[in-house]
């Protein structure tokens, strides 16, 4: 019983992590006023670059950085379009969602002899588990806390981003730019600069999110690896009311529901419910919970609105 709970909690942490990174990035971007619907595409390129660099260098940390940087390049296009060219941010984000997977699989075929799956990274070259061996194997705490380092990194990042957003000048400026760019501009804050920083950070984090999927949850890239997680992260941002801690909780809910489904799907558990019906639960739950939020939107006032300096 206890080990079942521990197993579910551990799986929750593992599956939430890619979502948390990505959603945190999305929070930053949207706080500054730029909708980032391209998270899915940025995650995908992150997953691909992470898996590929990880495979060729054998160093997961270099792979993680490379993944973040690659997604940041993609984010740069979104940033230029949304900030300098006053683009419809939803359209330019959708463009990223075509480009990310397209470029990833295109390059995958070139690097891996025409296949759409990258070769597996050996176990010892994946992201390490810092607490491995700290607890007795398969004990309660071991099942929960013996996680990949990215899991811990995600929570540390949540704290850092919370601190930066609410306690530093940069964060407060970011919020000002997202709420009322004209007012911020008249106070001498560079709306463009702040938004560039935010969108690029968001790309970097989405890339890390994708890579954490490829370098810890599994050990390679494949076209269906991300399929839809960027959109789930997008939902988590709104669900979490555009707050880093809220978005993280929303991601944990999605991860938890997923872990629960995996647990119940185990034939040894002996629950006789269709796994397909179980798999719907997180999505139905999200809608039900959002229904409880009637009329209480906390979106940054200027999110999605281009700012044009005259």
């Amino acid at each position: 019983m206890f080990s079942d709970i521990a197993l579910i909690l551990g799986t929750t942490l593992m599956y939430s992590t890619p979502l948390i990174f990505t959603a945190l990035g999305g929070v930053i971007s949207e706080k500054s006023g730029v909708v980032n619907i391209g998270l899915e595409g940025m995650m995908t390129i992150g997953a691909f670059i992470g898996a590929t660099v990880g495979y060729f260098t054998g160093n997961p940390w270099i792979a993680l950085l490379a993944a973040g940087s690659a997604a940041m390049v993609l984010a740069l296009f979104h940033a230029i379009a949304s900030i300098h060219f006053a683009a419809d941010q939803v359209i330019s984000g959708m463009a990223i969602n075509f480009l990310g997977p397209g470029i990833s699989i295109f390059l995958c075929r070139i690097f891996f002899d025409g296949t759409t799956m990258s070769l597996s990274i050996p176990l010892d070259q994946k992201i390490p588990r810092p607490l491995n061996g700290f607890f007795a194997q398969n004990s309660f705490f071991d099942l929960i806390f013996n996680q990949y380092a990215t899991v811990y990194l995600a929570f540390v990042l949540m704290a850092i981003i919370w601190f930066v957003l609410y306690k530093t000048r940069l964060g407060l400026r970011m919020q000002a730019v997202g709420e009322h760019p004209k007012a911020a501009d008249s106070l001498g804050i560079s709306v463009y600069k702040i938004r560039y920083i935010a969108v690029l950070c968001s790309g970097f984090l989405a890339g890390i999110g994708g890579a954490s999927m490829a370098l810890s949850v599994v050990s390679n890239f494949r076209p269906t690896l991300i399929s839809g997680q960027g959109f789930i992260a997008l939902a988590a941002i709104i669900f979490g009311k555009w707050k880093p801690q809220g978005a993280t909780l929303a991601c944990l809910l999605f991860g938890g529901a997923q872990a629960f489904v995996i647990f119940l799907g185990n034939p040894q558990v002996g629950v006789n419910i269709s796994s397909q019906l179980l798999a719907m639960i997180p999505y139905i739950l999200t809608i039900l919970i959002l229904m409880g939020f009637v009329g209480r939107t906390n979106a940054p006032a200027a999110v999605g609105v281009p700012f044009e300096k005259h």
Binding site: I91, A95, I96, F98, L99, I103, I105
Partner: peptide
């Protein structure tokens, strides 16, 4: 043996430029 995903890339580029009439 050219990756057919070039089509997704092409569509992404078209949509991207559609997003920026200001250019």
């Amino acid at each position: 043996e050219a990756p057919s995903e070039i089509i997704s890339i092409m569509i992404g580029i078209i949509v991207f430029f559609m997003a920026i009439p200001k250019l």
